[in-house]
Design a protein around this nucleic acid. Sequence first.
DNA 1: GTGGTCTAGACCACG
DNA 2: GTGGTCTAGACCACT
Lengths: 125, 125, 125, 125
Amino acid sequence: MINIDFKDRRPIYQQLMDSVEDLAAKGLLKANAQLPSVRQLAVDLSINPNTIQRAYAELEKRGVLYTVPGKGSFLSDNRKQLLEDKENKLLQALRDIFAQALELGLSLDDLLARAKNSFKEVTHD
Amino acid sequence: MINIDFKDRRPIYQQLMDSVEDLAAKGLLKANAQLPSVRQLAVDLSINPNTIQRAYAELEKRGVLYTVPGKGSFLSDNRKQLLEDKENKLLQALRDIFAQALELGLSLDDLLARAKNSFKEVTHD
Amino acid sequence: MINIDFKDRRPIYQQLMDSVEDLAAKGLLKANAQLPSVRQLAVDLSINPNTIQRAYAELEKRGVLYTVPGKGSFLSDNRKQLLEDKENKLLQALRDIFAQALELGLSLDDLLARAKNSFKEVTHD
Amino acid sequence: MINIDFKDRRPIYQQLMDSVEDLAAKGLLKANAQLPSVRQLAVDLSINPNTIQRAYAELEKRGVLYTVPGKGSFLSDNRKQLLEDKENKLLQALRDIFAQALELGLSLDDLLARAKNSFKEVTHD
DNA sequence: GTGGTCTAGACCACG
DNA sequence: GTGGTCTAGACCACT
């Protein structure tokens, strides 16, 4: 369910956070479900517990999960908010791309059409 | 022409490289035009000369510029190649966004339409 | 009467102690009234009996309640003392706030007036 | 300027954050001033660099400081915002106290008057 | 020199 | 068992 890519430039704790957020946003983890314990996940992923701890702590500050000391970590009930946030990020990323295309003098519609085509090819597998 | 943002997360040498590439891709710097000397740019931007040196060295390795010992650094004549590269990067970025939208169950057309709309509003200034 | 908030940062045994002390100070629990048994409360609140045990033990150490082996736990007759303690805590908290306001250069009277106003608004329900 | 109390219950990194925020809010540290380096402060306070690093990282996320990798950490220019935040925290703390006093049946004006009096005595030194 | 990440291992509080 | 904090020491990227 959670994969770490050691070749990825992003730090491990960041990859972890993204994984958990994705799982939550996609609904693969239900609200109030208990997450693997820091130590267990550390063993499973062959990662130092401190690194897991850091990811969980940041996710708690962001409201993605809540933690009950001595009991464990549990997913928050905010999938809707998560989805909204991710949607806004995608929108902002698109706008940034649009701006760059504009500056380079590229046709936006042409670019989008080509992106769609090559995307379909890839996902036809 | 070249601005450095110290609060930007990207390293300074990276920002420098991006700036030069952008200027070249947009045609604001012509082929074979002489670039500011390492020392001059270091003074202008209040940056360590080593940092400028690194950026120039990387850009030379990428073929964006060439250096004539004792004379200075000059822009290569490869605007076409640069534009193509940037276009491919944008396409790849779009495909990544498409994939994420798909995973989140968002409507791609809807997302694109909204991005276009909010983009137009912003750029109507 | 007693509520536990698992998302509260305070440990559960602490929340329990605070609840009992509050009920006693407010007079909602009379002197010598019998408290729920450890087992009963553990079931009611879905909490580990050890946690209840710890809270009761601490409360007994503080003189808030007394335990008759084989019969149960009963509230001590010290509401006056409890009230005084809580009052002193509030006074100390106020003094701390005053000190902080002073350090930040805020007007104490102004701050108090605004706190009163916004407090009244909230409690006018 | 920065003191750590090992008897304090608050974790060290938390004390550190509070200290820096206080210095910034009180204006004892000017905007864009460079903070001691992680390693230097670690030596000065006899604390592990990781702990300093953690405090600085959190302060950066809160916008209290910004960091230029390879150069150092610098105070952000947001004293006004900091002061406002601290003021709101004090207001909220006051409202909480008011609510508790109300529940205990204490006279708010009486409580405030006594707090003021005892506060003056202490600060008359 | 600077900050950022990670590991290993320890100790504490909580349930 | 759980999470939270801290130390020691290492390595990396950046200036």
